[in-house]
Amino acid sequence: MMQQQELIPHLFRTEYRKLIAVLGKFFGIEQIAIVEDIVGGTFLLASETWGLKGLPENPTALLYRVAKHKALDSIRRDILYTQKIAPEIKRLESGVTELEIDLSPQNIKDNQLQMMFAICNSYISTEAQIGLSPNILCGFGIDEIAEALLANKEATYKSLSRAKEKLKLKKVKIELPSPSEISSRLETVLTTLYLLFSEGYYSISKNTTLRKDLCLEAIRLNLMLTEMS
């Protein structure tokens, strides 16, 4: 049984990126800021609720449920989405209250891979990809990324925001490239993962835990890629 005091950081490490990938795919990359809010809010509400009511039997299942509710609320609240998700809204009005947000292991994995290709994209600079990947694909916070890359927090934040804005402007789709493109696109992904690993491996940052995490994450993402083929 996991120590209670490690539960949230553990769940955050394993589940944050999954929720970001699936909801990111669902809402589209142009709504990534909203998706980050939803997932961040999910963890906040879970921590508050568990503090009051004790831990649930299956914390992961509960996180997924809360995230779905929050996604649903967000859609209901924001009229901007009606165009994009109009058919969904119609279904909601017809009495269907569950959204088709698929949090099955297979779909989580698929969406994570698709997200990897969306982020490791030549539209944004390699430097920005190296910052954005740990943020979106691994759930690292701005502070951690800045520390790992030995950059100033402010600058890191701005660079990530610009990169997200660029993905939005270019209307990057969260999907796998077509077979004809895949080898050239894969090159970009592999370069970024290689550099991500190097950042951890060769960094002069004193935070060894963080450096190790970065290496492990790069390995994990690589493994996911190899499983794809």
Binding site: L7, F12, G40, F43, L44, S47, E48, W50, G51, G141
Partner: peptide, 14 residues
């Protein structure tokens, strides 16, 4: 909030 902050917030409630 960082996961560590969230955990730290949950603890006093528990």
């Amino acid at each position: 909030q960082s996961p560590e902050q969230l955990q730290a917030m949950m603890k006093p409630w528990q």
